[in-house]
Design a protein around this nucleic acid. Structure first.
Lengths: 148, 148
DNA sequence: CTTGTCATGTCAAGAGTTTGTCACTACCGT
DNA sequence: ACGGTAGTGACAAACTCTTGACATGACAAG
């Protein structure tokens, strides 16, 4: 330790990112559980809505889980009628996945619940503050992701 | 969906927080794995360094895991000689936990590796930008945590 | 004193995820 | 053409964490 008694701003930021994500995940879980959805399932449906026809591996990358975990999650959502996978695999053995109307309905309801959570998160901030927060944190994420 | 075609800034921020934390966790894991430490173990040692004598439940709350999970983690770190727990429980059956010199050494090495990661995260930002990011994100965390 | 509540530590069972592996198919360089 | 590489889906085993439950001891209210 160079021990300035306190951690460096960068270290504080690392811890703060983790804390914020943890509390956000917890609040989202509380909001989504009554709807019968886990946070991971919501992330899957949300990503699928933004990128219709995505493959399982593509979904896995965007949700930050392994493709194996995404596979079982997709199977579960398929059993619940939330999404459908093309029965005939594509060129690379991939199966295009799309939301069903039921999945769209569930996502809409979940999206409203999630919006209430993220709005409380940014409730104390002005619009310009949120914009700057997005810009700054985005640069941090990009800097970390740049190191391949 | 009110469907502006794009998600609201608050929703973008939620996703960005998750993405940043995920990439940061991944980079920290890559940096810590060669040292024989997991990210959770590092967080445990780091928290214990900041709060010597903390109990298992207290550590669990700060690291955002259940006290059961923290218990097995502490047992593992105790087996590795990283920390010690008072043999005689306190008033509420709690066992005070402290770092051993070996744990302090391991934490110092891990801290250096983590510092390299968080420095790349904030590398593109000016000091004042980091300070503002800390302030804004801190307000978001507090707003979420306020809802008990 | 007794009762209820709370907090801690621990054990057991369950769910979810990762790691490791295999099979299949397209792409690319030789 | 051919063999290597890479990407995808799927399966099994191992690991980690959570959920649930129990016993212990302290504290406040009755």
């Amino acid at each position: 330790m160079t021990s300035p008694g306190l951690a460096s701003p960068a270290e504080q930021l690392g811890r703060l990112v983790k804390e914020t994500q943890a509390v956000l995940h917890q609040r989202m879980d509380e909001a989504l559980r009554p709807l019968g959805l886990s946070v991971a399932q919501y992330a899957c449906l949300q990503t699928l809505s933004a990128s219709p026809g995505a493959t399982g591996s593509e979904l896995a990358r965007r949700v930050f889980v392994t493709r194996q975990a995404m596979n079982v999650m997709v199977q579960g959502l398929e059993r619940q009628g939330m999404l459908e996978r093309s029965d005939v695999p594509g060129p690379r053995r991939e199966r295009e996945t799309v939301l069903t109307p039921a999945g769209r309905t569930a996502l809409d309801g979940a999206g409203a619940a999630v919006r209430r959570v993220v709005d409380t998160m940014t409730g104390d901030l002005a619009d310009e503050d949120v914009a700057q927060l997005l810009a700054l944190l985005g640069r941090c994420r990009d800097a970390l992701a740049a190191g391949s």
